[in-house]
């Protein structure tokens, strides 16, 4: 009995310590930022999804996953690094043998840079919609209702704002219902926030700087800021 109590005490203490650590972390970083610079100096693409800077002055990596069975939104200005972020997310998913789908509103996807980021193109369904927004949503709806996809990306980048603002909110509600009982992550990427309350996680990607090595363009440093911290999971 005594040994059992000791073990229980120890367990409770561990849980309490862990909770304190989480609370301290949340208090410290009310809006955590994920920077491509945090991995190792100037190597922006060798991270896993994205990383969080934990204590002041110390760079410690933490993997952040976007929530399953929900809509996540990634937005940012042009050349902010959001496509690079998505390629890395797709690479992580395909490394887990998940089947991914990309509904590309403008047909702008570059298979070469995606493959270089580690995306397994054989397990990626690429749907090109040639700029027709109604086709984008029909295609996304068909894919979500088919089920079985680990990640579905809805790429609405470079779609004019006047068209984006006309998207009825009911579309997002329908998509939220479609994914809520499945392991699918629906990621909506655009130049501006769109999904509003239907998104469980919102990440804003901001460019820090372009990297030049002499005259050669080398990469983009970006920072992803979570708008809704409580839904971003720290996984290790």
């Amino acid at each position: 009995m005594e040994a059992g109590f000791t073990y229980l005490d120890q367990f409770i203490t561990e849980r309490a310590t862990r909770r304190c650590w989480w609370q301290a972390l949340r208090e410290k970083f009310q809006k955590p930022t994920f920077s491509s610079r945090d991995t190792a100096g100037l190597c922006p693409l060798t991270f896993s999804l994205c990383f969080q800077r934990i204590p002041e002055g110390e760079h410690k990596t933490k993997m952040v996953t976007l929530p399953c069975s929900a809509i996540s939104e990634v937005f940012g200005a042009i050349s902010s690094g959001k496509t690079m972020f998505l390629h890395n997310f797709l690479a992580e998913a395909s490394a887990r043998d998940e089947v991914c789908a990309l509904v590309d509103s403008r047909g702008a996807f570059d298979p070469l840079s995606a493959s270089a980021a580690g995306v397994n193109l054989r397990r990626l369904l690429w749907v090109r919609c040639a700029g027709r927004l109604e086709h984008v949503f029909k295609a996304a709806d068909l894919i979500l209702h088919n089920g079985g996809f680990g990640v579905v990306v809805l790429d609405l980048c470079e779609v004019p704002s006047r068209d984006l603002n006309r998207i009825p909110l009911s579309y997002w509600y329908r998509f939220r219902l479609a994914v809520e009982n499945s392991p699918t992550r629906l990621i909506v990427t655009s130049d501006q926030p769109l999904v509003k309350s239907c998104a469980r996680a919102q990440l804003e990607v901001k460019r820090e700087c372009f990297l030049w090595r002499g005259p050669v363009f080398h990469g983009i440093h970006f920072e992803a800021q979570s708008r809704r911290q409580q839904h971003v999971q720290l996984a290790g």
Binding site: A91, G107, A108, D110, A114, S115, A116, R122, L211, H218
Partner: peptide, 23 residues
């Protein structure tokens, strides 16, 4: 598209950017 096809492991290369085409 056929997810049944055997997956070939891809390793991240030296690219540090993504590109978007205008087609």
């Amino acid at each position: 598209f056929s997810p049944e096809t055997p997956a070939c492991p891809t390793q991240p290369g030296a690219f540090r950017f993504a590109f978007r085409y205008y087609r």
